[in-house]
Structures are given as C-alpha cells and as structure tokens.
Design a protein around this nucleic acid. Sequence first.
DNA 1: TAGATTGTTAATCGATTAACAATC
DNA 2: TAGATTGTTAATCGATTAACAATC
Lengths: 215, 215
Amino acid sequence: MKRDKISRNVILRLPRYLRYLEDLRKNDVDRISSGELGQLMGITASQIRQDLSCFGEFGQQGYGYNIEHLKEELGEILGITRPQNAIIIGAGNLGRALIGNFPFERNGFRLTGAFDVSKVVVGAVISGLEVYHMDDLERYLPKTAPDIAILTMPGGVANATADRLINVGISGIWNFTNVDLKITDPNITIESVHFSDSLLTLGYYLSANTETQEK
Amino acid sequence: MKRDKISRNVILRLPRYLRYLEDLRKNDVDRISSGELGQLMGITASQIRQDLSCFGEFGQQGYGYNIEHLKEELGEILGITRPQNAIIIGAGNLGRALIGNFPFERNGFRLTGAFDVSKVVVGAVISGLEVYHMDDLERYLPKTAPDIAILTMPGGVANATADRLINVGISGIWNFTNVDLKITDPNITIESVHFSDSLLTLGYYLSANTETQEK
DNA sequence: TAGATTGTTAATCGATTAACAATC
DNA sequence: TAGATTGTTAATCGATTAACAATC
C-alpha cells in the first residue's frame, strides 16, 4: 500500500468518517452516497471520494457505499482490528478518567498497566487495572508488553519519560502533557492532545467574535 | 482588525508559538529571530513571519522579536487578558481532572461553577468549586455568569445540553464529548477535543509503520 | 434499460515557501 | 556604517473542488 504519500489532512478525517458511519448503522441505515454523507458532515462529496480513493475502491456506481462494509474497511485502515497494548504513565485525575471511562477496546487498544511515582496510588487497582511504580517499568515489561504509552504525568518529566519508554521498545506515544516531545526517531509515532492549545483557540474566536459585534 | 479572513491553520499555530515563547522566557532568553524560532519549532521562518503579519508588526529589522513583547501580543490576540467565565457540565472523572488540574486562569478563563445530574456529586465541593444540579442551571446563572460551557458529560445528551446552554446565553463551548455538536448559530464558537479521533489517528500511523517495516 | 453514483483526471483555490527591498 | 532580519510580494506547492467517462 502506498500509504506514505497520504496527507495528514486525509488521515485526520478518517476517524470522523468512522463516527458518522457508526451512527448511521445504529440508525439501521444500510447504504449512503458520498453526496448524502457529505451533506450530513458538512463537506463536499468530492472530498469524501478523494479521501477514500487513497485506500481502495469501497463504493459502487449507481449505488453508493454499503455502510457496514465501509465501516469495516475504515476500521481496518485505522488498525482497530489489530489491538495494541498500551500502558498509562501517570495515574492522576486524567489518567484515572481515561482508565475508567475511555473505550480503548473500541479504538484498537488494550490497557495493560498503569505506572506512577506516588506512593498514594502505586499498588492500587483502578477499574481493574493495577498501578505499578515507575521504577518497576522494566520488571513489568513482560507482563504489560506495551506497544504504546499514554503520557498523563506532569509535563516537566515528559521528555525524560518518553526517552525511557522508547528505550524499552515502545513505538508510539499518546501525549496529554502540554509539551512538544523532542523525539528524533522517525519510527516513533506521537499524537498529542493539547488541552490548552484547544482552549486558547476557543479564546481567540470568542475575542474575534466580540470585536466583530462591537463594530 | 480584519480577523475574519485569517485561516484556521494560522490560529491553530498561535498557541504553539505562545508555548515556545513562554519556554524561552523561562530560560531568560530576551530576543529571537524568526529563523531561530523556526529551527526550534521545526517550521520555516517564512511561516512564522507570515502568521504574525496577520496581526501586526511585532518584530524589528536586524534584531528579530522581543520575546516578552511578542508573548504579550499573542496573549492579547488569544484573549488571555480578557478572562471569560466558564461552567463545566459533568463532574465525572474528566470534569474533576479539569477542575483540579487545568490552569484555566493562565488560558484566559475562570471556572465559576460545575453542574451534574448525579446525586452523588451534586452539593460537593471539588477543589473549591461547588457542584450544582443541572436542574438549577437557571437559578445559578447570576452567580456563575458563564461565557462558555465545558461539556464533559456523556455524549448522548451533549446536543440537548448544548441547545439548552445556548438558550441561556452562552457563546462558546469546549466540547469533550465524542460527538459533533449540531449547532447552526454562527455566533456560537465550538472547540472540540476528540480523544478517540486522536487515538485512532495514532493507530493508523502505527499500522502504517508496521506495514512499511514488513516490506 | 435509464438513472444514479462512483473513481479519477483536470481546474481551482488556498497555504506554504522563497525572494528581496526596506530598515533597524 | 555594515550586517542582520523584518514585513511583504511573488512563486511554488499541495489540497480541495469540479467535471466526466465508466459502470452498476
């Protein structure tokens, strides 16, 4: 597959496609045309067809797309069918929120362990998941067998922790700290969720709107 | 200001600029050229100068940018200096994580209340913030005076809740639910943090990498 | 079959990068 | 002053949209 050349913009739209398809299936809709889906999502039919054509031919002329089928193809592309193990570093409020509520399985991941440095949480079991001490990372490698790590600890130690995790063989990081990880290895995939970047953006548009109204 | 035409791509980079400038200030750096900053951030000097020129002239030929000054200008643009009131809807794990740990003040917001529907949390005080019942939203409007609402409740009720909040005068939403809010009013600003979209993206790149290696 | 809709090629639009005169 | 670096205009690159032949 010539996945190398597919632009990030396309990739970022795939999960949204999947969400809409899941919704449609829940409402017992069987098929949809790119035109209808585009209307639903607020984008052009062209864009949908272009995006999907990066990965194969999933539709049928005169019919559109079979939703169940397309949903499965997208799931395949996004790796949902090949679950990866994840460990979570930092069992504070955010870590616990993810452990307790986030549907990892439905997104192609499996939580196999949590790590922290605080004596208050180490040894605890949160929603069935054991919390180990960060010092024991290596000891629990056979048990946790992590493919990726989720960083929910303070940003100050994020880069040092990331380096350590990469050293033990992790290949991806889901980064919730408010720092850009300085990783040079191109084989390590990093996805960041920057809460404050998002909120600042909201702040910008709020201010911009206010100014417009004042005129 | 002709803010209307500024592309979203530019806006999304502003918080990142601000983060780097704050870091530099912490390290007692006073000035920086677009070339140096670009190197640091992994983007071109041209892009930085283009982005900033949307908002004004903050640099000086032959010198570069005064970091403290630019930092303040960006803060101004992002509205940090005009704090907005925020209420949080949903005092579950994620809500509590935000209440307890997120630096709202530094990002131009002030938490004035939390709302939930569960008897377990209503009436509680979390990190100094009172949790009211969602039924009492209107009653606490004078006290909370919200400009925006943060949605951390289940996705199923997100759209109904958003409508209700807009009815009581909110002008922005920071959406953590995994649904696209169906809001038609163009004066309402919505910023979403879609955890699972982000994780699915990570899953895609992990799969793509594996395939490449297998070749 | 006729109508609908795909996948894909071409045209357009917008965003990023390069270049450079202005000037600190 | 000479060197450095800006803000901005022009050139390039990439992404989105439009168009259409192929075909279910």
